[in-house]
């Protein structure tokens, strides 16, 4: 396994510099999903390399940006608050006992089963969410369990993001469903990272289903139909 770490860390060095392409980039993605989350040594190395990648910026000679830049950004900040217009205050979700709670859904989960040992969401993944929020007029829907659904009309991309999301009981996992016309389609299972963060990215257009549902299910069970809603009290 020592070779495996060395090989992984060599890729992580290139990854932090954003200099991987083709097969190496794909291999790094795979390792970041499968090996790194469970390997404290590689995780520590990744954080260290990303820190180096930040500090290296200081080698460039600092240059004061043109004066209009800051005022331009001030204009773009919504006067009613950071998330004002662009982040609508969550749509209300009916929480009848039989209605499942909506959370988000996930095309590509970052907090997947087996990733439970990963202490934090990879920075690059959070940057994707930041990019998404920057480039689209996003809507934010408050969900149960401190999670929220972040989507943009007409965009085939959607995030479930949450901090301090409670852990299900041991042996149980959260299961995401897209509910449409009374029919639930299983999307994926997930667990929060140990710090309680959930970040799930889905390549799904939010208009293709009625709402999302999160249930709590035994880990590894067959996703035939939705069980108990995850956070019924918060709906």
């Amino acid at each position: 396994m020592i070779d495996r770490h060395a090989e992984t860390q060599e890729l992580l060095a290139g990854y932090a510099l954003q200099s991987l392409s083709g097969g190496d980039a794909a291999e790094a993605d795979r390792l970041l999903a499968e090996h790194v989350p469970g390997c404290s040594e590689c995780r520590m190395m990744l954080d260290a390399f990303q820190a180096v990648a930040g500090e290296l910026a200081l080698d460039a000679e600092p240059v004061t940006p043109p004066d209009p830049l800051l005022p331009r950004m001030h204009r773009e900040m919504d006067p009613r608050g950071r998330r004002g217009i662009r982040w609508t205050a969550g749509r209300l979700v009916a929480a009848a006992a039989s209605v499942v709670l909506v959370v988000g859904v996930g095309g590509m989960a970052f907090a997947q089963l087996g990733d439970r040992k990963a202490s934090h969401v990879p920075t690059a993944d959070v940057q994707e969410l930041a990019d998404f929020a920057l480039h689209h007029p996003t809507q934010q829907q408050a969900l149960g369990g401190n999670a929220q659904e972040i989507s943009a009309r007409g965009v085939q991309e959607l995030y479930v993001y949450g901090r301090t999301v409670p852990f299900p009981a041991p042996g149980l996992v959260y299961r995401l469903w897209a509910v449409s016309g009374g029919h639930a389609t299983h999307l994926r299972d997930f667990l929060p990272y140990p710090d309680g963060t959930v970040l799930v990215r889905l390549a799904i257009d939010p208009s293709t289903f009625d709402h999302l549902l999160v249930t709590v299910e035994p880990a590894g069970s067959e996703p035939s139909e939705p069980g108990d809603p995850a956070w019924p009290e918060t709906g």
Binding site: G54, M73, S119, H120
Partner: peptide, 22 residues
Amino acid sequence: ALWRTPEAYDPARGSFRAFFLA
């Protein structure tokens, strides 16, 4: 991006400076 998604920075993972410049 920093203004709209400040949560992207996690102090447990390193300095703000390194995060932001990265």
